[in-house]
Nucleic acid binder design. Structure first.
Lengths: 95, 95
DNA sequence: CTTATATATTCCAAAAATGGCATATTATAT
DNA sequence: ATATAATATGCCATTTTTGGAATATATAAG
C-alpha cells in the first residue's frame, strides 16, 4: 500500500531527526563500541548536563536507534540497529 | 586536534538534519537510481510545490549529500555520497 | 524509614525549522 | 526586445526543537 511507503519515510525521518543533533551524536558515538550505562556516558561527556544526556538517550530510543536494559539502579543502553554503526563509520572516513 | 572531532560531529549533524524531513527524504529517494533534473523530480513528486522541492534540494546540497550540474535551463542533481545510498537501503530493509 | 545514587521528567523562554505564497533570476527561443 | 520555461529566493506566521534549571521517580543500603 502507498501508506506503508509514507509510514516508512516518516519513520526514517524520525531516525534522522534523532541523529541530527551534535550532543545526541556524541552520545551515540559512546555506544559504538558496546553497551554502557547512563552514568558511564555522563562520565565520558562530562561537559553536558545529566538531564541533557538522559533526554538524548530517550530520543535515540524513541527513534529505535538504541535499546535499554535496567539493572538495579543503572540503565544500560546499546545500539539496536546494525545499519547505523556502519553508516557512522562510513561518514567518519569520508569527512 | 579535538576541534577536528567537533567539526566532524557538527558536519554529520548537518547531514542528518538535512535528511530529517519527509519531503527531503522523498526527494532523495528519487535520486537513488541516478541523476535527475529538478523538473523530473517535480513531476515525480507532483503533490509538492516547486519551491518546496527546490528548497529541499538546496538543503541536501548544502549538507553535501547531493551535487548539481547546470545544463541549459535545467539543473541536474545526483547523490554525492556513496554511504547514504547504502544506509537508506539498509534502513529500508529493516523497517 | 531515611538517605544516597542513578535516571527521568517537567517547565519554559529562546532559537530554529516548516511550508505557503509571491517574486526573482537565468537561459533559451522567437 | 519579449515571451516562456526552469529554477531559486524572500517574506512570514506557525510549529517544533533546544537546553537549562528545578524537581520527580526508582532502587538499593543502612
Amino acid at each position: 500500500m502507498e501508506n506503508d511507503r509514507i509510514r516508512k519515510i516518516n519513520k526514517e525521518a524520525k531516525i534522522f531527526k534523532a541523529l541530527s543533533n551534535p550532543v545526541r551524536l556524541e552520545v551515540l558515538y559512546c555506544l559504538l563500541d558496546g553497551e554502557l550505562c547512563v552514568c558511564e556516558i555522563i562520565q565520558k561527556l562530562e561537559k553536558y548536563e545529566q538531564a541533557h544526556i538522559s533526554k538524548s538517550l530517550i530520543k535515540l530510543k524513541e527513534a529505535g536507534i538504541v535499546k535499554d536494559r535496567k539493572e538495579g539502579l543503572n540503565v544500560y543502553y546499546s545500539l539496536s540497529m546494525e545499519c547505523i554503526k556502519n553508516f557512522i563509520l562510513c561518514l567518519d572516513s569520508n569527512l
